[in-house]
Design a protein around this nucleic acid. Structure first.
Lengths: 206, 206
DNA sequence: TTATAAACTGAGAATAGTCTCAAAAACCAT
DNA sequence: ATGGTTTTTGAGACTATTCTCAGTTTATAA
């Protein structure tokens, strides 16, 4: 069985798949994961319904692809080697939070999809995976330097993530990005055990 | 047109309606608001599908009724006249939080429905309404006494509510109720501007 | 007991979604 | 051009859901 898959053809196939993913982002941003129908997605992507099933096994499969697409763009900000940094870790953390939130806010469609993913029941969507790992690394480092006053557990991580989520919701509702990010940083630092006064100072200078 | 609605009959009608609401709570706890189907709800309630539409206009209408039912039982804890209280307001707030979370945790079905309601897109479900009003009253009082260090806005309220939600999720996942509530109180007080040390003290004694 | 209103029933109309598949179209090495 | 391969198409099978309605049952005043 000969294969005719040269580069151009592969690109074309890839392009159709990407078109479907982009259409899915649009539709999910409008209606949410649950209500987004494959029928509407293929309509927006301008392909036949059957084409969807040539590229994706099912809806679940597509949602994962959407998650991967978006997360690929926004998670870099937490990928820092905290231990080798010279600066105060609280300040670094403030900057990472800022970068992360700004990245998420770049594209209003992504923003909507990310927020929607927080609403999802059950298993953690791929968009949110990976975030916790480097967060834990950071907090551990801060604790070892006696910079923070907390213990690390699911509750703490969930609260940190919720603060992010709430900030993104505020931004998507049109609140000032700068202000909102500042508040998010302040709240996170307070929860980590930085005093209110210092948390405010750091959040303002971030 | 004569009316035959004597008390007994009214009770019977009311009973059927309540049966449907209770069945809805069961089904929503299992499948979530979005996936809960009227067909399954009526099956669990042991009534005909059509009976549902005799009592409720539509699904939306039912979900509101479910919300009202649950919120009726659990919101009392925040209905305090903060200004006339003698005790330190942070301690009162800690106690109110504790009472509220314990109330929510009483019934595992309620717990599941309340958590589910946090996942809901769009408009604030009735379960969550009313919570903010007395929360604002409380924080304003604390600010006037120079007890807190924050400003009141949507972001703050959302963060407070998220801490509650996360605590309830932890509890529903089997984590220690006492511990979880303590952590929630501590996080809330820290965000309000109480120092980490004092927040811990208050949360432990609550 | 009987007539009437209220409450309930369940078949099925209407709608909407996922997914399959045989056939058509597009593509490409020769 | 030809023939085999990949990609796309869209009709429709299948399933699930909401909601309607004509008719039945139940409750009660008289």
């Amino acid at each position: 069985m000969k294969s005719f898959l040269n580069k151009k053809n592969r690109n074309k196939k890839q392009q159709t798949k990407q078109d479907i993913i982009n259409a899915a982002i649009k539709v999910i941003a409008k209606s949410g994961r649950d209500s987004a129908s494959i029928l509407e997605i293929t309509k927006v992507a301008k392909v036949a319904n059957g084409t969807f099933y040539y590229h994706f096994k099912n809806k679940e499969n597509l949602l994962d692809a959407v998650g991967e697409t978006i997360i690929g763009e926004i998670t870099d900000s937490y990928e820092i080697d905290w231990t080798s940094a010279k600066e105060d870790c609280a300040i670094l953390f403030a900057n990472a939070t800022k970068t992360n939130l700004i990245n998420c806010s770049q594209d209003s469609l992504w923003l909507a999809v990310i927020i929607d993913s927080f609403h999802t029941r059950g298993k953690i969507p791929p968009i949110l995976r990976g975030y916790n790992k480097s967060l834990v690394a950071h907090i551990e480092f801060g604790l070892s330097k006696d910079r923070y006053d907390t213990k690390i557990d699911d509750n703490l991580l969930a609260n940190m993530q919720s603060i992010n989520r709430n900030a993104l919701i505020m931004i998507s509702e049109g609140k000032s990005v700068k202000n909102t990010i500042q508040q998010a940083i302040e709240a996170k630092l307070r929860i980590l055990g930085i005093t209110p006064k210092e948390a405010r100072k750091i959040s303002i200078s971030a």
